[in-house]
Structures are given as C-alpha cells and as structure tokens.
C-alpha cells in the first residue's frame, strides 16, 4: 500500500503558508520564490537565477552544487544573503522526488530586527505561524525595559555616590572625616606606597571659642581647612578627626626635609589671624609627623599613636612647633 500519495499543489498555496520559500530545480535554478523573498531581493531577479548566486551556504560548508543537496542529512542549513548586508538566514531543506526539485524555506532567525529594517518588511510578510512578530515585540519590549533599568541603575549610582560622599565628609569644613581616613589607611597599605602621617592640633582654639563664641570658632576651622587643602596635593588626604584635630595623609612623600618645610609653612599660614565680624581670631598649630618607612610592617594604629606622641612632643616644646619622628 502506498502510504504517501503525491499531493498536487500550487505555488500559491505555498506562498500563503511559507512566504519565504524557494523551489529549486535539479540544476540549481530557482523556479519559484515566495513573496517575501521577492521583496528581500527588491529589483533583482530571483526566478531563473542560480541559488548559489543569491545565497551563500555557510553550513554545511561542503555543498557547492545542487546535486549535493540531496546528500544533506541535516534539516537545518545556515545561509547568508549575497548582498551588501550579508544578512544571515536559517533554512529548512527538503528534496521533493516527484517534482525533482528542492524546497528551501527560509527564516531570519536572530537577525529579524535588522532584516525588517533593511528590507522594509511588515507583519504580513511573515507566516502567521512564524514567531517573527513576537520576536520584534520582544526586542522592542526588551529595549524599553533595558532603558528603564539603566536609568534606574544610574539614578541609584548617583544617589549612592552622594550618600557615600556625605558619609565620608565633615559637614562643617568639607574635609574628609574619620571614616574616610580609615578607608584611606586601608587602601594606602594595600598599595604599598610609602607615605607619611601628619597629625595637627590647633593651639589656643579653645580660647577663641570661649572668648568670641562658636561661630568664630567655626570660621577659624573653615579657614584652617582651606589652608590645609591649599598646602597639600590632590593625592593627599586631609581629614578633620576631632574638634580641632586634623590628620593629613601625604602620599609617596617621606623626605623629612620636605615634610619639615610643609609643617613649617602650615603653622606659618595658620597663625595668620582670621577676621570674623571685625574680630581678629588668632590660633596656631602643633604638628607631629611619622613616616611609613620607619616601620618594617606599617600599622595604621601604631602610626597614629606615634604621630600623636610626636604631636605632644611639639606641644611640650612650647606649641606652634612640629616634630618629625624618625
């Protein structure tokens, strides 16, 4: 019993169901092309042309002649349109013995979005069963969702930066605070670059506060902060760690002579009176300095303690002085 009877059909039927199909004869000449294929090739002739002239077979690669198509044992072939875009295509291929020709049905696969733009296609150019429109829909929706997600990510990032800055900044002077200093210590040690630590404490600050009030004291602190910023480099860190206490991390700077020069200049500038509401407020500073190179294994706590010791040595020496511990 013959299970498979030849079914008479017209190409019009195929056009409806498979608008991207090609019928190729035994010589490799295209006998019929679905309407969407015609549209893709625009004003180029399709019927009557050799299929290998229009399409490049990418996989399987060894097929150069239509006779070999019969031997293809895979259902899926990968092709490329021979045009300026080299649009990739996926194809399903079947040999039709009764007609002695090859039926090749094509699809754009992942290149659908580009293809629709390039060849000016619309929803009606695709078989209703093909997921082309769903795919376009998803591409569109995904792009929209990505836009929203990326906006959100940027907004969160900005807000995080602001919060981080606030958390690491001293509200009055805008200098770094102790939290920022601790983080800097950690980074400094990891980088393994020599550095020095300058601990600075204002002298006579309490008397400015007591005599002229807290507003005057704040003005002095702000002026001192400006001096510290101006006399250090971008790479250094200036932190306010207490009422009138400051710590400066000087990156890659361990030359005692230079440090002494910097300390002397800081004191000199800080001693310049600050005028607040016509009142001259005078303070000075005592400084203690330690160098990371003085330690085999520099430890922040130990260095801070030693800097503190050096600072108190300066205080004992009569204030307005600096001590570089070696």
């Amino acid at each position: 019993m013959n299970m498979e009877r030849p079914i008479p059909f017209t190409c019009g039927v195929l056009d409806r169901v498979l608008p991207m199909h090609l019928m190729i004869d035994a010589k490799g000449i295209i006998q019929h092309a679905g309407p969407t294929i015609q549209k893709v090739f625009g004003d180029r002739d399709v019927v009557g042309r050799n299929v290998f002239g229009l399409l490049e077979l990418k996989r399987p690669r060894n097929i150069k002649r239509i006779e070999d198509v019969r031997g293809i044992d895979t259902k899926r072939v990968r092709l490329k349109i021979r045009d300026e875009y080299e649009t990739p295509l996926t194809g399903a291929v079947a040999f039709m013995p009764d007609l002695n020709c090859v039926l090749l049905n094509l699809s754009f696969g992942y290149s659908i979005a580009e293809a629709v733009a390039r060849y000016e296609l619309t929803g009606s150019d695709f078989a209703p069963t093909e997921l082309a429109v769903e795919m376009l829909y998803l591409v569109e929706a995904k792009t929209a969702a990505m836009d929203i997600a990326s906006q959100l990510a940027h907004r969160l990032h900005d807000e995080k930066e602001v919060a981080k800055n606030e958390a690491q900044t001293d509200g009055l002077t805008g200098l770094a605070n102790r939290r920022a200093l601790d983080l800097r210590f950690g980074r400094q040690l990891k980088r393994n670059v020599p550095f020095s630590l300058m601990h600075l404490d204002l002298d006579y600050f309490k008397s400015v506060n007591d005599t002229h009030g807290h507003a005057a004291g704040d003005a002095v602190l702000e002026a001192v902060a400006d001096v510290l910023q101006q006399e250090t480099r971008e790479v250094d860190l200036v932190a306010r760690v207490g009422g009138d206490e400051f710590v400066i991390v000087l990156d890659n700077l361990v030359c005692p002579a230079r440090l002494e020069k910097i300390a002397a200049r800081l004191i000199q500038r800080i001693e310049k009176p600050v005028v607040f509401r016509d009142i001259e407020c005078g303070v000075s500073a005592s400084i203690g300095v330690v160098l990371s190179t003085s330690y085999v294994h520099p430890d922040p706590l130990e260095m801070a303690e030693d800097a503190d010791q050096a600072l108190y040595a300066s205080k004992r020496a009569g204030r307005a002085a600096f001590t570089v511990s070696r």
Binding site: A113, E114, L121, E140
Partner: peptide, 9 residues
C-alpha cells in the same frame, strides 16, 4: 508605522 525597531539598521 515602521516595523523596524529604532536604533537597528
């Protein structure tokens, strides 16, 4: 109405 998604060519 262009079926192509904006940004692809």
């Amino acid at each position: 109405f262009l079926w192509a998604t904006g940004g692809v060519s």
